[in-house]
Design a protein around this nucleic acid. Structure first.
Lengths: 349, 349
DNA sequence: TCTCTTGATGGGAACGTTCCCATCCTAGAT
DNA sequence: ATCTAGGATGGGAACGTTCCCATCAAGAGA
């Protein structure tokens, strides 16, 4: 007996089995069943079931040029933020009859190039990217060929593409307002190295602006590489210099993690020194007395990205200019910004 | 000017541009460059660059029957365990020239069916699945058609497929041994509803066995649906009944999260009542005095899954019998199982 | 000089679809 | 009875590859 590796029935076999033409079978599976007489419809349905037929998406894609594939390029797939967005993206894709091809670059621009060309070779119909640094040649070329593109979270300068992400200015405003309302006057803004990442730049910049606008507020900004001793040192130095009440504002989830570690290492109670992080993570409610966060509407961001892509895709009429969709964060208030709460130990929130 | 949506150069155009036959271009990109004379090689290379040519993977897949796609079906994409495994899978895929098509079922068997047939329609060459419940008809059919399959973590009875996952028996042994060495005599085993999920069954069962084998150990098992009040109630009741020292053994990361919440709500210090969780999560080191865990080698599990798939794929020789590859966990000891540590408050580990 | 071998190159069919167009049939209009 | 319209159905080309096979030139051996 010959090895029969993954034999799939073809449309032609179904046609023969049902005693009809392949065109009719194609119509049956191509969403044109109303054009078929009830008799044919039934025969085809049965034949297909008998043979276990399933349309070959590859062949479909070849003929029609529609791969029904969307690509997503993620800088760091282990980042909970990326995952949450991806979840939204995936759902929206399937709701619209698309599948998702994911590529993770691990923040490496070589991988970014490789994976980009891989996605291109599968003829994805659109691309969502959460890029590492500056736009590569590959990307530029793909866009010029007319591939719809949506930037996720990180925007690339000189790139006239749609984008979806957090309203970073608003986020910083909400954070600063909240801390200030809670009585914290001395603020430390902590970010991962700002570099070219646009959200980091925007947050960094807005924080500076708020400081300069409000004389009652004092503060500093730092963007160290995240390792425990460095972060501890920065926080310790800040606390030594600064007046009270003082608080730390973390520019993203990774920073919140590092800062929480550092504050623990320094033996400081949360709340006594305020702590507010952008990005909500499951453990934020667990570290006593709970860490106040600004949660991003990640699902919505993912879905919006797909929406934008699809809008470009059916592109009837003139292509509208690039559009950036911004989402507001949600403040989740916990003990770490309750100055009065500093004497409660295991407060449960 | 006509709308030119994503025009890609074809092999024929490159051939014309270079003044050679399409066969030669195909050879150039199909990894048979040595068969071409240096002159041809150069001309083709240049022509391709000039036209921005990129082989069409869809067409390739159609002709050769090799889609170069591997599929992964995940029960819950927001579970950090799944993500970590997926990261390993993704890397291994790309290292071997495959791309990964991911589908998330959200633990819903309807979605499982839909996505399965979607993956099938893209003619994935192999499938890794982390299934919700019992095997669907779809899956059965695909396997019978000869599609290589690897089960991730959860095994399906009556399914002669390869599998990769944690050595659950060993994990429970390590957990029980550790708790017992640290002096905890009264153990509460807490799981998500066991149902049909094989790892849950195995852990559940092994725990029971250990209890029955060791008279010095006392304990209970529960598998509630995870909501805060239910878990709190179970833990409280257990602590009221049980002698000391007592400890809670959590069957997975979700349970650890719920149990930690519950213990905090009950005002209990970790360590005084022991806590050990299967699955390592970033916050386990953050909750004072740190939560002891058994970490799974998730990357390795993912890579191993791909390995197995590929082994089946080139399938020269007789197909070997199904094989289950088991990985040992790593114990990460922290304060939550240090009985003496119960009087230290912010111990930093 | 002639045949044979070898290596480089090209032509054409096939993969499984879709879709344009042709054909056939039936019923209504003349 | 003939003509026509329109719905149902089918044939065949095309999508961009790969791969089998054919062709051709050049050098080796007779």
């Amino acid at each position: 007996m010959p090895a029969r590796p993954s034999r799939h029935a073809t449309i032609l076999e179904v046609a023969r089995e049902a005693g009809v033409s392949k065109t009719s079978v194609s119509r049956y599976f191509g969403g044109e069943r109303e054009r078929l007489s009830p008799a044919l419809r039934q025969r085809i349905g049965e034949a297909a079931r008998r043979l276990g037929y399933r349309p070959n998406q590859i062949a479909r894609g070849l003929k029609g040029g529609r791969s029904r594939l969307l690509g997503m390029l993620v800088a760091d797939i282990r980042n909970p933020y990326s995952i949450a967005v991806m979840h939204g993206v995936e759902q929206a894709c399937h709701e619209h009859g698309y599948s998702l091809l994911v590529a993770n670059t691990d923040n490496d621009s070589v991988q970014e190039r490789t994976h980009l060309s891989l996605l291109a070779s599968y003829r994805v119909e659109g691309l969502m990217i959460n890029a590492a640094g500056r736009p590569t040649h590959e990307l530029q070329a793909m866009v010029e060929q007319g591939l719809p593109l949506v930037l996720l979270d990180r925007w690339l300068e000189s790139f006239g593409a749609d984008g979806v992400g957090l309203d970073n200015t608003l986020a910083i405003d909400m954070a600063v307002d909240h801390l200030s309302e809670r009585g914290y006057r001395h603020l430390l803004f902590l970010s991962e190295p700002v570099g070219l990442a646009s959200p980091r730049q925007q947050r960094w910049q807005r924080f500076e602006q708020r400081l300069s606008e409000e004389p009652a507020l004092h503060g500093e900004r730092h963007d160290p590489a995240l390792d425990d001793t460095a972060v501890s040192a920065i926080i310790a130095a800040f606390l030594a210099r600064a007046g009270r009440p003082a608080a730390v504002l973390c520019a993203n989830g990774n920073v919140t993690l590092a800062a929480t570690r550092a504050l623990q290492a320094l033996g400081i109670r949360l709340g006594e020194v305020g702590l507010l992080g952008i990005d909500e993570l499951d453990w934020c409610s667990l570290v006593p007395p709970g860490i106040t966060t600004l949660a991003q509407p990640t699902e919505a961001i993912g879905r919006a990205a797909v929406q934008q892509l699809l809008a470009r895709l059916d592109g009837s009429g003139p292509t509208p200019p690039p559009r950036h969709v911004l989402f507001p964060p949600t403040l989740i208030e916990r003990g770490s910004t309750r100055f009065a709460a500093c004497d409660i130990d295991n407060a449960n929130i």
